[in-house]
Design a binder for these strands. Structure first.
Lengths: 209, 209
DNA sequence: CGTTTGTGAGTGAGCGTTCACTTACCGCAA
DNA sequence: TTGCGGTAAGTGAACGCTCACTCACAAACG
């Protein structure tokens, strides 16, 4: 069956993704890399299957041998980064000593993700509104994980009472908006170099919101 | 000349925009209202000119009597909200007593804008990446205004030193990310009801980032 | 009567998708 | 080693369709 999530994740995430180019890697991984780069800068609707195929050094038909549709390809890419972020957040929270440490680790994880595969992260940022609706149940959701940890901190007395969803959103905004501004060219330093400051800012935002 | 910015702003912003429907107001304002609603929920590329015309209760041709192209229409709408936010931020800063008051007023202004014309604000949120590039010089830019005010506060000693652009982005994120989460259905209360808490959070984020 | 405003069928370009076909590669029997 | 059948992967021209945009015309208005 073409385009199953398991297969695609393996193609996109199993290999060292940065080694995949138009001339290296499996056809599926090459299609994903090509599509990702084009989608991130010009949007899913701004790119044709012909362009993706050309960028991947393959034919248009091969896209459909590996994915059910252009939209399924776009969704696969989004789910891949979404699942990766979920895993990163889960690990960061699990390994943390206390609430403050959890915030620091989660922020650091986001910063690293934003730096280490910039294209994938930019695709995530720009297509949250298209694919990021929460109606799908059972979907890994990093934001829900963060909100739950904040709610836990509130009952434990580590954080002033309030709306955990809004606190989570504010904290996330402290990291994502700078990432978006960097993408727009407003500055160009690595996110990781500001991870500590952003972690303090996120923690402060959580306390106050 | 069809679609000049001045005319469009008057059509979109000069009238009481909430009174404009498919059957009331000038053709231009009806087209703008119809396009705005469709663009906000389904994206510029996800909506056809036929649908816009139908929603506005007009013919396709009338779109082109009033705008140079579909893209010009989309850009006009974006520039309208961008200019409005710029004016709001400028006023908020000008009328503020001190830095803390400026932050509170700007946050309140964003919350009010998010509540009072939700569709326009959602269009802004979802299309920042398409139209929000900063390469155009002389363009009113609310973010630059905020960054400048933060830089001023830093030299005045009202705020710890750091990168004003990143501080501004973090503060904006504290407001915009909750707005985005509300749009995605994660919560549904009015932004204005949380304006004070978000203002405190934004100020804290500015101090720490 | 001239000008502006609105109309909607028409147009060609470009889209996502399909499918008959070619190529590459495998295990296996002779 | 050679030949063979089966399978999967890749190809690219072609298809049906939708799109943004145009234009000859009509209505409205002063």
């Amino acid at each position: 069956m073409a385009g199953s999530v398991g297969m695609s994740e393996r193609a996109l995430l199993g290999e060292d993704v940065r080694g995949v180019t138009a001339t290296h890697g499996t056809a599926k991984a090459r299609i994903e890399r090509a599509a990702l780069g084009l989608f991130a800068t010009r949007g899913v609707d701004g790119v044709s299957t012909r362009e993706i195929a050309a960028e991947a050094g393959l034919s248009e038909g091969s896209i459909y041998k590996n994915f059910d549709s252009k939209d399924a390809l776009a969704e696969t890419l989004f789910e891949a980064i979404h699942a990766r972020l979920y895993a990163l957040v889960k690990t960061a929270i699990a390994e943390s000593a206390d609430f403050e440490d959890a915030v620091r680790r989660v922020v650091a994880a986001y910063c690293d993700a934003a730096d280490s595969d910039r294209t994938l992260f930019e695709y995530h940022l720009t297509h949250m509104f298209r694919f990021g609706q929460i109606d799908r149940p059972g979907r890994p959701d990093p934001t829900a994980l963060i909100a739950a940890r904040i709610a836990e901190a509130m009952t434990a007395g580590d954080c002033p009472d309030g709306d955990a969803e809004i606190k989570a959103a504010a904290a996330l905004g402290v990291v994502l908006q700078p990432a978006a501004h960097r993408m727009a060219g407003r500055f160009s330093i690595a996110m990781a170099s500001r991870a500590d400051a952003l972690a303090r800012a996120a923690l402060a935002a959580i306390q106050e919101a």
